[in-house]
Design a protein around this nucleic acid. Sequence first.
RNA 1: GGUCCCAUCGUCUAGUGGCCUAGGACAUCACCCUCUCAAGGUGGAGGCACGGGUUCGAAUCCCGUUGGGACUGCCA
Length: 482
Amino acid sequence: MAPPRVRFAPSPTGYFHVGSARSALFNWFVARQSEDGVFILRIEDTDEDRNREEWVDGIISAMDWLGLHADEGPFRQSDNKVAHEVSVTTLLDAGYLYYCDCTGEDVAARKGDNKTPGYDGFCRTRALARAANTALRFTTPHDGVTIVRDLIRGDVEFANSTIDDFVVAKSSGAVLYALANVTDDRNDEITHVIRGEEHLSNAPKQMMLWSALNEVTAHDVALPLYAHLPLLVNEQRKKLSKRKDPVATESYRDQGYLPQAFVNYLALLGWSPRGDEEIVPVEILIEQFRLEDVSHSPAFFDVKKLAHMNGEYIRALSIDAFIDACTPWVNPWASAWRPSDRAPLWAEADFDAELFARVAPLVHERVATLGEVPAMVQFFFADAVTFDEAAFTKAIGNDPLGQSMLKSALVRFENATWASSVLHEVVLEVGESLGLVLRKAQAPIRCAVTGSLVGPPLFESLEILGRERTIERLRAALERLP
RNA sequence: GGUCCCAUCGUCUAGUGGCCUAGGACAUCACCCUCUCAAGGUGGAGGCACGGGUUCGAAUCCCGUUGGGACUGCCA
């Protein structure tokens, strides 16, 4: 069997949609399963009104982030305009196309309550010549059926009578999606068209186009195998919307999701690896993936599960790899890439890479995304503590015992051996002398030093922070009192 | 409205006629661990949309109902 040639063909009209990312991934799986499989990236940028160059960059960089590297491309569909026009001319000469000057209103008015939707073929026999306001339509057959052999869904049958004479070229001359896409797929000798289910109803039209082109040109290309992936939906079970839903793949990178985790999660949407284990390395995903096993029903993109998996991937990182991965978030000044829209929580001069290396193990087990790290380690780097006022009030402001804890600890810390185990012991003892169990005793100290009641292990943190800064903060907290 | 797709715990799924008293994962609840928060461990609750068939036997096959969705552009 010939090696698969697949393509991912996004249109650059917005952020890189997670659904698109999954389509790209499943295409990529198919290509990587064969020694000679080819994964093509084709940017479908023929709608000049809606495309923006920055979206193209977004797609390419996000795919790069995910490790979905194209074997061929990125190509621009707009570079293939000549080929598209050749298709138009060929089809026109062969009598498949006709000019139509109906406006949208005309079509709607004539449709009335006609059962058959869309265009009624009014201009088919009018033999219009090309004019400034004429679009080109494809003559679809009235009889028979077109069967889409879908690898995922089986045979899907469309009565040709339900398919209207669709427009293939605008009056401006611009060639539309259906034909442009088919022309490029033929020229790229695509073997598998793997895309979202929203394209299923395009498939019969494209098959008609493909077959017509086969008939009238010397370039006979076997029809591709189709596979229409189930949609990704939101909680309302609607197709994920660019406007309302968090669908930008780029934003997941910004939040500190690991590409491996993201890929793994995406693979679980509409498909599942063998066995009970869901955390599966990409090589195994590639090995086990089969289009035939893809589910038929829409899937909800569950950020909670993604976050959980990301946490697992983070914890599986060696501490050095974790430190490296954190760099864009904790030390954006030293990193080629930095998450957008994230102001650093401390000044560049305050960051200390060696200090972070000591702190990292403390937070490694505690975050689900890398984006959570800065807030968790802020107190190590920032000059002054940023207090959670509610926490301060609870543990210190309104608690005389908490204030006593601070005062006693201040004294004991002056001379204590500066090691976490000793500090632990000291706080335990001071607490006991005030009738406080350790969980109560540590709270005011944690709050004074970190500004919060939750955070990394306290005594290890104190050890790393050092005696001087710790004492300084204990004093500062006491001074905040009225 | 028309065409098409879909239907297993709240969510993602396993299941391809007997292995199902329906398995796993996330979320959730309880307990354990514990300096906070996590992580981790143990356990619990939770599902085959409904109705008819076919069959000795159905989550699995067929039909219908209901429900959801996509498309219905001189967008892709």
